[in-house]
């Protein structure tokens, strides 16, 4: 069983704040982390390996410094990690990113299962996983919360939707994206940490994965960013004052009196 897990280095967006005076992002002290949703993907891959045997390969695309951070996944129990990195990939949208990652997965070869987190917390697109699957020509399923059974040729799982979930069977090779309900990611073991220190993370260039320059980076990206701005928060509300009892009465009158709550 050969499993590839796609991960992304992201700024910890939960730590990003807006400076209300200048209305700009405060970036100081915002750490780069591995996308939290991807850690569930790494954990699930390790669990599958522990159950049915195999290899777990972590794959990422990003600037060279990501290589160091990928070692965290080796400390958890991944067998190897590979970084795809090249200036040619700068400016990639989801289509160009999935093209590059799909070429890397084809180079890894004979992969049974690709696992991605449901989305990355910086872009929140949830698109790269399904797009990789389509580029490689394998089926995919999203929002997976439980794997019931798995072999090298077939997976049975539960995937979430708005109404509940579906039990679905899919032939492998295939790709799944996982949600946080699926597991609780483990902490690195001492042995894993020792191993990760010595691990070499290969860095693959666009040429290494035989990528067509026309499909990479800006040139391979149909979508362009026209403008980025800080969302305005409207400020027109009514803040009550007085004793708590009075404030509560004001509120109930406002909502019930105006037939908003009936």
């Amino acid at each position: 069983m050969k499993i590839v897990v796609c991960v992304k280095q992201v700024p910890d967006t939960t730590e990003v704040k807006i400076n209300p005076e200048t209305n700009t992002l405060i970036r100081e002290g915002v750490a780069s982390i591995l996308n939290p949703f991807d850690m569930y993907a790494v954990e699930e891959a390790i669990r599958i390996k522990e159950k049915v045997g195999g290899t777990v390969i972590v794959l990422s695309m990003g600037p060279p410094q990501v290589a160091e951070q990928l070692k965290e996944t080796i400390a958890m129990g991944a067998d190897e990690a590979i970084l795809v990195s090249d200036r040619a990939f700068a400016g990639s949208d989801t289509l160009a990113t999935s093209y590059a990652l799909s070429k890397a997965i084809e180079k890894i070869a004979d992969v049974n299962l690709v696992i991605c987190g449901k989305q990355a917390i910086d872009g929140d697109t949830a698109q790269v996983g399904p797009e990789i699957a389509e580029k490689i020509g394998i089926p995919h399923l999203t929002y997976v919360k439980k794997i019931e059974a798995i072999s090298e040729t077939e997976i049975t799982l539960e995937r979430m939707n708005e109404d509940g979930y579906e039990r679905v069977q899919m032939p492998l090779p295939g790709l799944i994206t996982v949600v946080k309900e699926i597991n609780e990611p483990r902490l690195p073991s001492l042995k894993g940490m020792m191993r990760s220190k010595k691990a070499e993370i290969p860095i693959w260039s666009a040429a290494d994965i035989d990528a067509d320059p026309a499909k990479c980076g800006l040139n391979g990206s149909p979508t362009w960013v026209k403008r980025i701005f800080i969302p305005e928060i409207k400020c027109q509300g009514e803040i009550f004052s007085g004793e708590p009892e009075e404030q509560v009465k004001f509120l109930v009158n406002a909502l019930v009196g105006r037939k908003i709550v009936v």
Partner: peptide, 19 residues
């Protein structure tokens, strides 16, 4: 003109697909 939250909702981005 497609506007969406990015960066965990801290920013809004307007995206085009011109070609």
């Amino acid at each position: 003109l497609q506007t969406r939250p990015a960066f965990g909702g801290n920013l809004m981005a307007t995206i085009l697909c011109p070609n």
